[in-house]
Amino acid sequence: MSNKLFSLKTSQARWVILISYIIALAFDTIALFGHSSPVIPPLTLFFLLYWCANFLDRTHLFSAFLLGLLADTLYQTTLGSHALLFSMITFLMIRHRLRFKGYPVWQQAFLISLYMMSYQLLNYLFFSPVLNGNEIVQYWTMPALSILLWPVLAYSLGKISHTAADD
Protein backbone atom coordinates (compact mmCIF):
# COMPACT_ATOMS: atom_id res chain seq x y z
CA MET A 1 0.00 0.00 0.00
CA SER A 2 2.70 2.48 1.04
CA ASN A 3 4.82 1.70 -2.05
CA LYS A 4 1.78 2.23 -4.21
CA LEU A 5 1.01 5.46 -2.43
CA PHE A 6 4.49 6.81 -3.10
CA SER A 7 4.47 5.78 -6.75
CA LEU A 8 1.26 7.56 -7.77
CA LYS A 9 1.66 9.84 -10.77
CA THR A 10 -0.36 12.94 -11.60
CA SER A 11 -1.15 11.60 -15.07
CA GLN A 12 -2.92 8.59 -13.47
CA ALA A 13 -5.46 10.82 -11.76
CA ARG A 14 -5.47 13.93 -13.95
CA TRP A 15 -9.26 14.02 -14.34
CA VAL A 16 -9.88 13.37 -10.66
CA ILE A 17 -7.63 16.30 -9.76
CA LEU A 18 -9.32 18.60 -12.29
CA ILE A 19 -12.84 17.67 -11.18
CA SER A 20 -11.86 18.01 -7.52
CA TYR A 21 -10.65 21.57 -8.19
CA ILE A 22 -13.95 22.45 -9.91
CA ILE A 23 -15.93 21.00 -6.98
CA ALA A 24 -13.73 22.88 -4.49
CA LEU A 25 -14.25 26.15 -6.38
CA ALA A 26 -18.00 25.51 -6.44
CA PHE A 27 -17.98 24.93 -2.65
CA ASP A 28 -16.00 28.13 -2.09
CA THR A 29 -18.53 29.96 -4.28
CA ILE A 30 -21.43 28.50 -2.26
CA ALA A 31 -19.69 29.67 0.93
CA LEU A 32 -19.22 33.15 -0.56
CA PHE A 33 -22.76 33.57 -1.88
CA GLY A 34 -24.24 31.89 1.19
CA HIS A 35 -22.54 34.46 3.45
CA SER A 36 -21.01 31.73 5.56
CA SER A 37 -18.78 32.69 8.46
CA PRO A 38 -14.99 33.07 7.99
CA VAL A 39 -14.49 29.86 10.00
CA ILE A 40 -14.89 27.71 6.86
CA PRO A 41 -11.47 27.03 5.27
CA PRO A 42 -10.92 27.63 1.54
CA LEU A 43 -11.47 24.17 0.05
CA THR A 44 -9.54 25.01 -3.12
CA LEU A 45 -6.36 25.53 -1.11
CA PHE A 46 -7.12 22.42 0.94
CA PHE A 47 -7.41 20.25 -2.17
CA LEU A 48 -4.33 21.87 -3.68
CA LEU A 49 -2.26 21.02 -0.58
CA TYR A 50 -3.54 17.43 -0.62
CA TRP A 51 -2.60 16.83 -4.27
CA CYS A 52 0.72 18.61 -3.77
CA ALA A 53 1.59 16.36 -0.82
CA ASN A 54 0.54 13.13 -2.51
CA PHE A 55 1.61 13.49 -6.14
CA LEU A 56 5.32 14.12 -5.95
CA ASP A 57 6.13 14.15 -9.67
CA ARG A 58 4.90 17.75 -10.12
CA THR A 59 5.39 20.99 -8.22
CA HIS A 60 1.68 21.95 -8.63
CA LEU A 61 2.75 25.61 -8.70
CA PHE A 62 1.04 26.19 -12.05
CA SER A 63 -2.23 24.87 -10.58
CA ALA A 64 -1.69 27.03 -7.50
CA PHE A 65 -1.17 30.12 -9.64
CA LEU A 66 -4.20 29.44 -11.85
CA LEU A 67 -6.48 28.62 -8.91
CA GLY A 68 -5.25 31.77 -7.19
CA LEU A 69 -6.24 33.84 -10.24
CA LEU A 70 -9.70 32.25 -10.21
CA ALA A 71 -9.97 33.00 -6.48
CA ASP A 72 -9.03 36.62 -7.22
CA THR A 73 -11.87 36.76 -9.72
CA LEU A 74 -14.29 35.13 -7.33
CA TYR A 75 -13.45 37.34 -4.34
CA GLN A 76 -12.97 40.47 -6.51
CA THR A 77 -9.47 41.10 -5.11
CA THR A 78 -6.43 42.52 -6.93
CA LEU A 79 -5.43 40.13 -9.70
CA GLY A 80 -2.40 38.11 -8.65
CA SER A 81 -2.84 38.53 -4.88
CA HIS A 82 -4.48 35.16 -4.22
CA ALA A 83 -2.23 33.67 -6.93
CA LEU A 84 0.76 34.84 -4.88
CA LEU A 85 -0.74 33.53 -1.60
CA PHE A 86 -1.57 30.11 -3.07
CA SER A 87 1.89 29.86 -4.68
CA MET A 88 3.62 30.73 -1.39
CA ILE A 89 1.64 28.19 0.65
CA THR A 90 2.20 25.52 -2.02
CA PHE A 91 5.91 26.30 -2.02
CA LEU A 92 6.00 25.81 1.76
CA MET A 93 4.32 22.43 1.27
CA ILE A 94 6.76 21.40 -1.51
CA ARG A 95 9.70 22.05 0.84
CA HIS A 96 8.42 19.56 3.41
CA ARG A 97 6.11 17.23 1.51
CA LEU A 98 8.32 14.13 1.69
CA ARG A 99 8.39 14.27 5.49
CA PHE A 100 4.71 15.36 5.58
CA LYS A 101 3.65 12.33 3.54
CA GLY A 102 5.34 10.00 6.00
CA TYR A 103 3.44 11.33 9.03
CA PRO A 104 0.21 9.76 10.33
CA VAL A 105 -2.99 11.59 9.35
CA TRP A 106 -3.57 13.23 12.75
CA GLN A 107 -0.07 14.68 12.68
CA GLN A 108 -0.61 15.87 9.12
CA ALA A 109 -3.81 17.58 10.31
CA PHE A 110 -1.87 19.63 12.87
CA LEU A 111 0.71 20.64 10.25
CA ILE A 112 -2.10 21.61 7.86
CA SER A 113 -3.50 23.89 10.54
CA LEU A 114 -0.10 25.65 10.60
CA TYR A 115 -0.26 26.11 6.82
CA MET A 116 -3.79 27.47 7.16
CA MET A 117 -2.69 29.82 9.93
CA SER A 118 0.06 31.13 7.60
CA TYR A 119 -2.60 31.59 4.91
CA GLN A 120 -4.90 33.52 7.26
CA LEU A 121 -2.03 35.67 8.46
CA LEU A 122 -0.93 36.55 4.91
CA ASN A 123 -4.57 37.04 3.92
CA TYR A 124 -4.97 39.49 6.80
CA LEU A 125 -1.81 41.39 5.85
CA PHE A 126 -2.75 41.51 2.15
CA PHE A 127 -6.42 42.43 2.29
CA SER A 128 -7.02 43.81 5.82
CA PRO A 129 -10.59 42.44 5.95
CA VAL A 130 -12.95 44.46 8.14
CA LEU A 131 -14.03 41.98 10.83
CA ASN A 132 -16.69 42.81 13.39
CA GLY A 133 -17.51 41.09 16.70
CA ASN A 134 -17.62 37.31 16.31
CA GLU A 135 -16.02 37.39 12.89
CA ILE A 136 -12.59 38.07 14.43
CA VAL A 137 -12.79 34.90 16.53
CA GLN A 138 -14.19 32.88 13.61
CA TYR A 139 -11.46 34.15 11.28
CA TRP A 140 -8.66 32.97 13.56
CA THR A 141 -10.48 29.71 14.45
CA MET A 142 -10.39 28.55 10.84
CA PRO A 143 -6.99 26.74 11.21
CA ALA A 144 -8.42 24.76 14.16
CA LEU A 145 -11.39 23.61 12.06
CA SER A 146 -8.89 22.50 9.40
CA ILE A 147 -7.56 19.92 11.91
CA LEU A 148 -10.98 18.25 11.93
CA LEU A 149 -11.49 18.54 8.19
CA TRP A 150 -8.14 17.17 7.02
CA PRO A 151 -8.60 13.47 8.07
CA VAL A 152 -11.98 13.33 6.28
CA LEU A 153 -10.54 14.91 3.16
CA ALA A 154 -7.37 12.81 3.19
CA TYR A 155 -9.38 9.58 3.53
CA SER A 156 -11.91 10.48 0.80
CA LEU A 157 -9.41 11.82 -1.72
CA GLY A 158 -7.04 8.91 -0.99
CA LYS A 159 -9.79 6.40 -1.82
CA ILE A 160 -10.85 8.26 -4.96
CA SER A 161 -7.32 8.76 -6.31
CA HIS A 162 -6.38 5.10 -5.75
CA THR A 163 -9.55 3.93 -7.49
CA ALA A 164 -8.76 6.26 -10.40
CA ALA A 165 -5.15 5.02 -10.53
CA ASP A 166 -6.30 1.37 -10.51
CA ASP A 167 -8.68 2.03 -13.41
Partner: peptide, 22 residues
Amino acid sequence: HFVIAFTLAIVLMVADHYGQLM
Protein backbone atom coordinates in the same frame (compact mmCIF):
# COMPACT_ATOMS: atom_id res chain seq x y z
CA HIS B 1 8.89 27.57 -10.79
CA PHE B 2 8.18 29.43 -7.57
CA VAL B 3 10.35 32.39 -8.62
CA ILE B 4 8.44 32.62 -11.94
CA ALA B 5 5.04 32.37 -10.20
CA PHE B 6 6.11 34.93 -7.57
CA THR B 7 7.36 37.44 -10.18
CA LEU B 8 4.32 36.97 -12.42
CA ALA B 9 1.95 37.48 -9.47
CA ILE B 10 3.72 40.71 -8.45
CA VAL B 11 3.63 42.00 -12.06
CA LEU B 12 -0.09 41.16 -12.30
CA MET B 13 -0.84 42.91 -9.01
CA VAL B 14 1.00 46.06 -10.07
CA ALA B 15 -0.65 46.05 -13.51
CA ASP B 16 -4.10 45.53 -11.99
CA HIS B 17 -3.61 48.17 -9.33
CA TYR B 18 -2.08 50.96 -11.43
CA GLY B 19 -3.38 50.27 -14.93
CA GLN B 20 -6.55 49.50 -16.80
CA LEU B 21 -4.87 46.78 -18.88
CA MET B 22 -6.19 43.93 -16.74
